[in-house]
Design a protein around this nucleic acid. Structure first.
Lengths: 134, 134
DNA sequence: TCCTAAAGGATAATTTTTATCTATTGATAA
DNA sequence: TTATCAATAGATAAAAATTATCCTTTAGGA
């Protein structure tokens, strides 16, 4: 169980018990939707309001403490901000994994082919994970 | 103005005037959100119901006549199904463009690094387009 | 320890999306 | 052509998702 007190403060977020619990839930679970996060939070704070979840998720996004991951045919999930990475989505079980891929050559190709100044990439690779293939 | 009658039918969709208009709107505009599509459709069918837009979008998605494009920090847009491609998003003006990029090497890397059987990719490159950079 | 802006909980309001119901219509076959 | 019928459109209600409001509580600095 990590202590996110200081990391929250570095992102200009007061370290409330609810926020520390959100941070820990995301740390242990990796990627979570609003509703599953709400479910987990309810176990610890039986009277937590769904509005508190939304307010914190939005504030944490604005302050880049967390990131939203938009998935095809699924609800968005949220993760703690890490070094840039891509995602693997299992279409069978819905599980999401991080994967580090070097996209430099792709970005170069895109720079040549377009007139865009590219700042960031969002890549989701969808398929079937090992467990679900058996 | 293309005639999508047969293409709709090939996707098991009756070619109603509303659907033909949706197809043409997507063809000429490339990528559209629900609300902008509704706005355009209202010009042609002053009493069209928003429910009709949603029902058609969902049915067209199920029958792969169109695709949803999920964008970071923006609402989803929809496009006619074409050969697989990636997207460029201008963070300044919100414009979305298609871009053909060869992702084979990335997919290979991902296959090696993961235990996934990869079926498809969703890539959005965000940045600033030429017009907005001036 | 005190003070204050910020946060939490309860709840209402808003927005987004889906479901329901009836009249209409596209597509097929006689 | 016309008749037939399942599918669709529109109107609207309902449900789901998200945000706003209000008041009490609290984190964190003075």
């Amino acid at each position: 169980m990590n202590d996110y007190t200081n990391i929250l403060r570095e992102h200009n977020l007061k370290a409330t018990p609810q926020r520390l619990a959100i941070a820990n839930a995301l740390c242990t679970n990796g990627h979570m939707s609003i509703e599953t996060l709400y479910g987990i939070m309810l176990k610890k704070f039986s009277s937590i309001s769904l509005a508190t979840i939304y307010k914190n998720i939005n504030l944490m996004l604005e302050n880049t403490f967390i990131q939203e991951v938009k998935l095809p045919n699924a609800k968005s999930v949220y993760e703690l901000t890490k070094t840039p990475h891509s995602h693997l989505l299992c279409e069978a079980c819905g599980n999401v994994e991080d994967i580090l891929l070097n996209l430099n050559s792709i970005i170069e190709d895109a720079l040549k082919a377009s007139e865009f100044q590219i700042e960031k990439t969002d890549l989701v690779l969808s398929g079937v994970c090992k467990k679900c293939r058996k």
